[in-house]
Amino acid sequence: MGTDFLQYTITGLTVGVIYAMVAIGYNIIYNVTEIINFAQGEFVMLGGLFAAFFVGTLHLPVFLAFFAAVIATGCVGFAMERFVIRRARNAGVLSLIIITIAVSILLKGSAMLGYGKDPHCLPAFSTRGPIMIAGAVLQPQVLWIFGVSALVVIALSFFFHRSFYGKAMLACADNPIAARMVGIPVRQMVLLAFILSASIGAAAGVIITPISLMDYDRGAMLGLKGFGAAVLGGLGNFYGALLAGCVLGLAESYCAGYLSSGYKDAVALIFLLLALFFKPEGLFGSEAATLKKF
């Protein structure tokens, strides 16, 4: 009993951290532009597939492949903002939703044509065998996942609170017109937001691939659940996303373990609906005042 519980917890936290990374990606873009980027999940998928390509075909070492995949996906984020979102800057909310959905379909389709429909694999970052904790199995890759995401979170909070660009981005989020008046190039900040969120998504994709494999069709579901985490944590709220991601992952894992494994996928979405209906500012956001701040 205790062993099972521990195993479910480990599994839940592992996926939960990935959902959190996706949620952080949503938040960065939402904060600067108020756009919900429906293509966020595809960045995760692209990250994993790029890394599989770099390792499998170009035979790069895994760590190099990690950075290469993150940079490559960052470029995709750049292209998306520069060539699509920027054109639609005057479009209404409805058009923006549809545009990001269209981009996600395009990314998914290109991935399918480029990589085929088979799942792709990546070697684990470290080669040692699984670690046993009181009968439960902990794969070393899980530690890598925790480590990398912790690094990402720390680096991001450093970036937003200490660096010039980070502060400028926060200013855009607060009030774009005022930001422009004090000389902050808002368009560039939006561009930066897209690159950043694409890269973070890609990082999540690369670290999860050794455990779960990656194929072109994964993006939509990861995106949806990540979005659930973002809403649950309060849209725009950074630490809220992290917490909410873990909550969702755990809920899913316990549901699979103790209730019904078939309805596992519905758990995150039910949380999403409940949060939207009863607490649209999220579990950890306090009212609209902080809706747009970290």
């Binding site: 579901m221 949806l224 519905a266 979405l269 609906l273």
Partner: peptide, 28 residues
């Protein structure tokens, strides 16, 4: 009723999640 009381793209999100839930129920 709850989704449309909110502004912007909340209905889009709520329906997106709801659509997937229905699909899961049909399969389960």
């Amino acid at each position: 009723v709850p989704a449309l009381r909110l502004k912007g793209h909340y209905l889009a999100m709520a329906t997106l999640g709801f659509g997937v839930i229905v699909h899961i129920i049909l399969g389960e």
